[in-house]
Simulated scan of single mutants.
Amino acid sequence: MDVRVQKEAFDFGAEAAEFAAGHSEMGAIVTFTGVVRDTDGTLARMEIEHYPGMTEKALRSHADEALTRFKLGDVRIIHRYGPLEPGEMIMMVATAAPHRGDAFQAAEFLMDYLKSRAPFWKKELTADGSDWVAAKAEDEDALDRW
């Protein structure tokens, strides 16, 4: 298991290739990458905050649950913090499992947690000011299925 919370950008292609290369015994590798979205063209940047130590511990705990719940061989989570501009990668999840169903479900399970409950705080900054990003009902509903 590899869980990283970092300020630096990451190379998705290199991360995905390295993760897959280490798992020739697995039949499925699933990756997902989230990017900063500017839905109406006004976002200057997003600022992501976290509590060092606490955040990594929470992500590892959830990754451990995914490993056992979905019969995974491995998990990688990378999540960035600090100022990010539209189009920049925020995070990556990779799962490796003997079968694709477990790999896909585990990736969704991890994503639903990262979107709703992971201890990150996001603020959107526009020319008109800044607003903290509130939890969305659809994100909570997605988490409830687990």
Rank of each mutant, 00 (worst) to 15 (best):
80 R>F: 01
144 D>P: 04
103 A>T: 07
96 A>K: 07
9 A>P: 11
21 A>Y: 07
69 R>S: 15
111 M>L: 11
85 E>G: 03
89 M>L: 15
8 E>S: 13
61 S>V: 09
119 P>K: 15
22 G>Q: 08
127 A>I: 06
141 D>T: 10
87 G>C: 08
57 K>R: 07
110 L>K: 11
24 S>G: 12
6 Q>P: 00
108 E>C: 14
145 R>S: 10
130 S>G: 06
63 A>I: 15
127 A>W: 02
6 Q>C: 05
100 R>E: 06
108 E>M: 10
38 D>Y: 09
124 E>F: 01
127 A>F: 02
41 G>M: 05
38 D>K: 12
76 R>T: 14
57 K>E: 13
89 M>Y: 12
93 V>P: 03
77 I>K: 13
145 R>G: 03
34 G>T: 09
66 A>C: 11
107 A>Y: 11
21 A>N: 05
82 G>N: 10
130 S>C: 07
82 G>K: 11
102 D>Y: 04
54 M>K: 05
116 S>E: 09
79 H>V: 03
132 W>I: 10
16 A>P: 00
30 V>E: 03
46 M>R: 05
11 D>H: 11
108 E>W: 07
56 E>R: 15
114 L>D: 02
32 F>L: 06
23 H>E: 07
88 E>T: 01
37 R>I: 01
32 F>D: 04
